[in-house]
Simulated assay, not measured.
Amino acid sequence: MIGIDWWLKPVLALLCVVSSFAQISCAKEETYAEDIGYNIDQPYVFKVPKYFPEPIEMPSNPMTQAGVELGRHLFYEPLLSGNKKVSCATCHHPDKAFSDGLVLSNTGISGRPLERHSPAIFNLVWTDSGFFWDGGSTNLESQAFAPLTHPDEMGIHFPEMTVRLASIPQYVDMFQWAFKESPTAVGVAKALAQFQRSVVSADAPYDRYRRGENPLALGHSALRGLRLVQQKCGSCHSGELFTDNRYHNNGLDSSFTDDSHEEVYFGRYRISRNPADMGAFKTPSLRNVMVSAPYMHDGRLTSIVEVFEHYRSGVQPGTYTDRRLYQANGRPGIALTDEEVRDMIAFLHSLTDNIFLNNPQYANPYKTQ
């Protein structure tokens, strides 16, 4: 959609060339951009540890400081919802690693509970296998359209959304700086994607230990837990991201039905139609796991202790249950002693990144202005 100020573009461009007053005005716009914390012409540069993978680039939506900052504003903007009360941050809280602490959120525009648990949001710039619990969206740009339009989430109609944004001078400026265009639905999706890719967690006590900055950042119990996590959980929660970003049936259920008529309980099978993917859901990262309860795609496990109990004795055997969850004797589940569980939980605490959880670059800009 063309914004309501389209006819002003050639006029303003001409005035900026021939009028000294307009030159001063344009300079003020640049100063304003700098005042709110970024250079509108600069690409966004990631600062991540050397032992992390290289961030995955999106050539069709290159990240810039202006795009990321626009995305941050839009992430916290309730005008993106039909009732002007719900934003992306309604279900994704920074202090909970951008999860919401609810089993199934009912904070959307309809007040009805959703059918899946709100996932944490961080380190998504390394995701190359789809988004949502079942990978139903191929990239963050297309992913944004689902919660924006869903009648139980934000329930916005795009023409109305763009008119709202185009009526706010600051957003008109920010869209021009980021994309050289007036507010559009595509621009909203691209900006939200850029902001979410910028959200990185890489400064937990484990990272300070890993980088050699503080050899004592992990105690003896946590060090034992690190080895156990690598040994017992590393086939899925792998690498420095502590996820393989793939899909697994972890034995939560032994049978699958379609009560919702949207196949939300079928997991990855809903997308791939591969029978091996029945009941398979994306592996979440173990980073910040201690602040992002409840757990699993439907939030059914309320504590980390319940998670360990599931893997020790609750794994349901079945045709689709991941074979990695079977012991050598054919018994389902992971063999763990109570002491091993305590050590692993101690290590999981070392993956809580308080710098990330309190990073002002990811915070609500409307509370800091």
Rank of each mutant, 00 (worst) to 15 (best):
H117W: 01
G299N: 09
V125I: 15
I355F: 05
P284N: 06
G225E: 01
F132G: 04
N354M: 13
L226D: 00
F131Y: 15
G299C: 09
A202V: 10
P55R: 01
G212W: 12
L80D: 02
E30F: 14
Y265S: 09
A280M: 08
R342M: 02
A146M: 09
M1Y: 07
L14K: 07
E153T: 04
I4L: 12
Q176C: 01
Q65D: 05
S110I: 09
G234F: 08
I109W: 06
L80Y: 01
V163Q: 11
L223R: 14
H248I: 03
Y44L: 05
S167L: 14
V341Y: 07
P215I: 13
T257M: 01
G108T: 06
R210F: 11
F132S: 09
Q361T: 10
N106D: 15
S19D: 10
Y32C: 01
Y320K: 02
D253L: 14
L218P: 02
V264C: 00
I355R: 14
L79A: 05
T243C: 04
H150I: 00
P94D: 01
A89V: 03
L15T: 03
C26K: 09
F256C: 07
G187F: 01
Q170N: 11
Q23H: 13
Y366P: 03
H150W: 10
T352S: 06
W133I: 12
I355D: 10
K47A: 06
T337M: 03
L79Q: 06
L348N: 01
V186T: 13
Q65M: 12
A276F: 05
S142Q: 14
S292M: 08
E240L: 03
N274Y: 00
F256T: 03
E69I: 06
G267K: 03
P284I: 01
C26G: 02
T319W: 10
G212A: 02
L286G: 03
L79G: 15
A178C: 05
V307M: 10
N139K: 06
S313D: 13
N364Y: 05
R164S: 12
S25C: 11
I345F: 12
P215K: 14
D95Y: 07
S182T: 11
I121Y: 10
R208K: 15
L223G: 10
M174Q: 15
P275K: 06
L79R: 15
R312T: 12
M344Y: 05
M63L: 15
N364A: 04
V11Q: 10
G318N: 08
L351P: 03
Q143L: 07
P147V: 10
R273C: 00
S313H: 11
R72F: 14
L8D: 11
H297G: 00
D128Y: 14
E69D: 14
K50P: 00
D338R: 12
F46A: 05
A178S: 13
A191P: 08
A185E: 04
S182W: 08
F266Q: 04
K28N: 09
T319K: 14
R324N: 15
R324G: 15
L124K: 04
N250Q: 12
G155D: 14
F256S: 03
I345P: 00
R287N: 03
Y206F: 15
G67E: 02
E262A: 01
I334N: 08
L104V: 09
N61L: 04
A178F: 03
G101K: 07
N39D: 15
V186M: 09
L348G: 03
H92G: 10
L218I: 08
T184M: 12
L148V: 12
Q231S: 13
N61Q: 04
T319D: 04
Y51C: 01
S137P: 00
A27P: 00
Y311S: 13
Q316E: 12
